Each structure stands twice: as structure tokens, then as C-alpha cells.
Amino acid sequence: MEIYKYQALAINEISEKMRLDISTITRIMSKLVRDGLILKNRSVYDKRIVEATLTEKGKTVARQLQNSIEDYYKEVISNLPRGHVREVMRGVELLVTALEKAR
């Protein structure tokens, strides 16, 4: 989803955004390349940097995943008591902020 969001990301950027070791990202990326979901290419700006982009198949899968996530969130929100959605969303915002500060 990060590659879908940014269209192309260097391996180290993915590692930082996902807070995973580069070795872990590299293993995952190898499987995604094998499955035809991403391509790895050298950066046009710096040949030392390897960037990942989604294939057409990868974009289709990412769009389907994005739609599933959005549908799930809509379902969750629809099950909240009327009049409390903003209150709950504010609580979630506070939780996310607290989690980010704890990193």
C-alpha cells in the first residue's frame, strides 16, 4: 500500500515507513517480485538506490485491498452508536498521536 500511495519508493524508504529492517523488506520484496506484483529498478537519479514500483497486477491488487479497507472502515463506523462517531474518531486521533509519540 505504501508503494501504491507514493508510486515508487526506495527500499530504505519502505523500511523507514514500515519500521522494518531492510533485510525483512528485501525478503518480502523478493516474494512480491516473484508473484509479479512489483518491479525493482535502479533509481535514475542515483544508481546505488533500488526503487520499487507496482506492476499493473500489483496496482489492481492494491486497489482491491484499498477498497476492502475502506469498506471495512465504513462498516465499523456504521456500527457505532448514533451521535458518538465524532467522539470515537477524536479518541482514535488521540490514540494515534500517543502511539506516534511513543516510537
Results as ranks from 00 to 15, higher is better:
M1H: 04
I3W: 08
Y4G: 01
Y6C: 02
A10I: 00
S15H: 03
E16G: 01
K17F: 08
K17I: 03
K17N: 13
M18R: 14
S23P: 02
S23R: 15
T24V: 15
T26L: 02
R27I: 07
R27K: 15
I28Q: 10
I28S: 05
M29C: 08
S30V: 03
L32E: 04
V33H: 07
V33T: 12
G36I: 03
G36L: 05
G36E: 02
G36M: 04
L37E: 09
I38Y: 01
K40W: 00
N41T: 14
N41E: 15
R42S: 11
S43D: 15
V44A: 13
V50L: 10
V50C: 00
V50Q: 09
V50F: 03
E51D: 02
T55V: 07
E56H: 00
K57C: 01
V61F: 11
V61L: 14
Q66I: 05
Q66S: 11
I69Q: 09
E70Y: 00
Y73D: 08
Y73T: 13
V76W: 02
I77W: 03
N79I: 01
L80I: 13
L80K: 01
H84N: 08
H84I: 06
R86H: 04
R86Y: 07
V88D: 01
M89F: 05
M89A: 14
V92F: 10
E93M: 08
L95D: 03
A98V: 04
L99E: 11
K101S: 05
A102L: 08
A102K: 15
R103Y: 06
R103H: 07
